[in-house]
Amino acid sequence: MANSTTPTSAPTLLMSPAGRWQLRRFPQRTNDPLQAWDAADELLHIAIAEQAAAVASSYQPLVLNDQWGALLMPFAHCQVTTMNDSFVSQQGQLANLKLNQLDSALKQISPLAPLSANIDSVWLKLPKSQSLLEYQLAKLSGELNPGTPIVAAAKSKLFTPAVRELFSRYCEDVDISLIQRKCRVLKARIRHVPFVPEKYMSEWQLAEHGLTLQHHVGVFARNQLDIGARLLLEHLPAAGAQEVIDLGCGNGVLGLVYAKRSPSSAITWVDESHLAVASCASNIELNLGVKEQYQTRVDDCLSQFASASVDLVLCNPPFHQEHAITEHIARQMFRDAKRVLRKGGEMRLVANRHLPYYHPLKRLFKQVNQVASNAKFVVYSCLN
């Protein structure tokens, strides 16, 4: 009999009217309790199966916000383009194509890349960020041919009045289904509205640190400093670390403040979000200037970094992945930080008090000390 504490693995076989595939989240975990697709994906599969043209090899669909390839799979043999902010999701799509032994002419692009005017239709999962959704709809409206069909799906609760208004602004013939399995499907046609990318950049001042911060849509803490980062900034390590990484950098504020404190340090800002890294690059140039010692990188945690190569890792880890609440990303960050830190190196991180990070950190690092805390957050110093 299985131990009651043994995690239950989520199903990995997706069967729908559009086909059947093995699908796993990425990076793959043993006994992963989170499934790689949801009911909204299955409803979109029904819509795909109803359109004979959608499965022609010459078809050119655009798929947005497809986390692990569930929406990509029926189009794998087409001239398909996926647009996703997440590097991890892009890697997951490739891994699932390989898992299903599918050869694909897949083109993966970031939200900032131009769109081909030859796109035949758009298939969209609603992102968590409403500002990102507005940017995506505005981009589609400005760059695709008017009348291009769009099909979107998500949990019913995400089709708020504000979201419906966005679709009405950028689309015509908007039709939203009744609730099916707690989800809805929206069908519409794109109308032309001129696209002004600059409209979707925000800027604010962090006066106490002498910074001007610019943000693309969907980037964490887009309009103000979050209180966890504020606590960590009050308790940064001393200046002097030679090689530094701001891991899960978001707008880059942790590395920016440390760079001003320690101008001789070489700093790399790392995030899995293309929009976060683009925001961070703008903020580095705006506040520090263009210098070879400052680099940005899109990565799955620190998978592309050499072991024992840095002295300090700064981290404000996430505890969610789109709509799913999960600790596994933070724990992967901790393991990667342990690997890339030199002997005697430090990871300085801030975390919500309720998250059970202390014992996993103690198992990884030689020494773990609580540096500071308040009602909601705690700052840890983890020495390698």
Rank of each mutant, 00 (worst) to 15 (best):
S129C: 00
L34E: 13
W123Q: 09
H77L: 13
A54R: 14
F75N: 00
S89L: 02
E134A: 13
S57K: 15
S89F: 08
P27S: 11
P111G: 08
S86N: 11
D66K: 02
C78F: 00
A105H: 14
Q130H: 13
L132F: 11
D103Q: 14
V55L: 14
P111Q: 01
L44F: 01
A95V: 09
D32A: 09
L115C: 00
N118E: 14
N96K: 07
L72M: 02
L72D: 02
A53S: 12
L115K: 07
I48N: 06
L71R: 04
R29M: 05
A70E: 06
Q35F: 03
N84V: 08
W68D: 07
L126C: 03
P61I: 08
V80P: 08
E42H: 03
K128A: 10
S57Q: 12
L115D: 04
L132E: 12
Q79M: 07
A54W: 15
F87P: 00
T82W: 05
A105P: 04
I46T: 14
Q79L: 08
N65R: 00
A47Q: 15
H77I: 05
W123G: 13
A40M: 07
Q101A: 15
I119A: 09
T82S: 14
S116M: 03
A52G: 07
Q67V: 09
D85K: 06
L97P: 02
R29A: 10
L132C: 01
L133T: 06
Q91D: 08
L106A: 04
C78V: 06
S86F: 00
I46F: 03
R29S: 04
N96A: 01
A70L: 01
S57F: 01
K107I: 13
S89T: 01
N31H: 15
L112S: 08
Y59Q: 14
H45Q: 09
L71V: 05
D85G: 02
A49E: 05
S104D: 05
S89D: 13
